[in-house]
Amino acid sequence: MAVTSLKQGPGRHQQILREMRKEWTAYLFLAPGLLLFAIFTVFGIAFSIYLSFHQWNVLEPEKPFVGLDNYIRLAQDRRLRGAVVNTLYYAVVSVPLTMGIGLLIALLLNNRLRARGLFRTLFYLPVITSAVAAAVIWKWVYNGDYGLLNYYLLKLNIINEPLLWLSDRNLAMPAVIGVSVWQGVGFQMVVFLAGLQAIPQELYDAAKVDGAGPVRRLRNITIPLLSPTMFFLFVISMIGALQEFTRVFLLTNGGPLRRTTTVGYLLYQKAFKEFEMGYAAAISYFLFAMVFVFTLLWWRLTYREIEY
C-alpha cells in the first residue's frame, strides 16, 4: 500500500505532463487569449491593488506608498458619497424600469401579430443608435426653449411652463435615466423574447385546460420560467448601470451641482482629469464591491423563486 501510494504521486504528475506535451497545440490555440488575460486581467488587477496603496499621480515622479490612506479617504470623501447616492438612484430606477418595459413589450410581441418584425425593429433602433448621436438628439428633446418634450407636455397641459430638464437639479437625473431607458429597452426585449420562446407551449395549454386565465398563466408559468433570463439580464444591467459614465459625460457632465455625478464619472475625473490613479483605483474597488453586493442580493432573491 505504502509503496504504491508513493509511486502514485510522481506517477500522476508525469502522466499529466505527458498529456500536456501530447496536447500542446491546445495551449497554443489558447495562447493569444491567455496572454491578454494574463496581462490585462491578472496582472492588471494585481497592479491596480498595488496602485490603490500608493499615491500614484501620473505627473509626479515620486509615487510613495501610503498604506490604506486612499481607502480611508474614500470613506471620508463627500463627493464620493454624493456620487454613490446618485449611482444608486440611477441604477435602482433605471434597471427595473428598463427591464419592466422590456418585458412588457416582449410579452406583447410574443403573440401572433401583424408587423411583428417592424415593431421589433422600431424598439431596437435606439439600441443601435450611437451614444453620441443619442446625446445630441436628447439634448434637443430636453431643450428648455424649443425642446420637443416641453412642446408636447405643454400642449397636453401636463406642465404650465417649459422645464429645464438637463439643468434643473431635481430633473437632471430623471432626464438621464430617460435616455438610458430609451436606449436599453430594445436589448431587454430581444433577450426576453428569446427566453419566452424557450418556454414549452404545452405548459400553457395544460394551464388553459385547468381554467387558468391570462394573469394566472403569467404569474405561475411565465414569470417563474423566465427567472434565469431575468437573473442574467439583471446582473449584466446592474453591472452596466453601477458603472454609468457615457450618458452622464455626454448629457450633463455630472452637473448641475454634481447631481448626476456617478461613481463611474467621478472615477474618470479622478483618474484622467486629476491624474490621481491611486485614489481612482481605490474607487474602482469600491465600485466592484457595490456590484458584488447587488449580484449576491439578487441571486439570493431569485434563487428562492426557482426552488418554488
Binding site: M20, F40, F47, Q243, M277
Partner: peptide, 26 residues
C-alpha cells in the same frame, strides 16, 4: 487537456469584474 476546466472557469469568473477595475491599470 490538463487545466481546461480551471482556465475556462477562471475566465468566466473574471467576466463579472466591472470594466472600471481594469481600466486604470490597462
Amino acid at each position: 487537456f490538463p487545466g481546461r476546466d480551471f482556465l475556462f472557469l477562471l475566465g468566466l469568473g473574471t467576466m463579472m469584474i466591472p470594466g472600471m477595475v481594469t481600466l486604470i491599470p490597462s
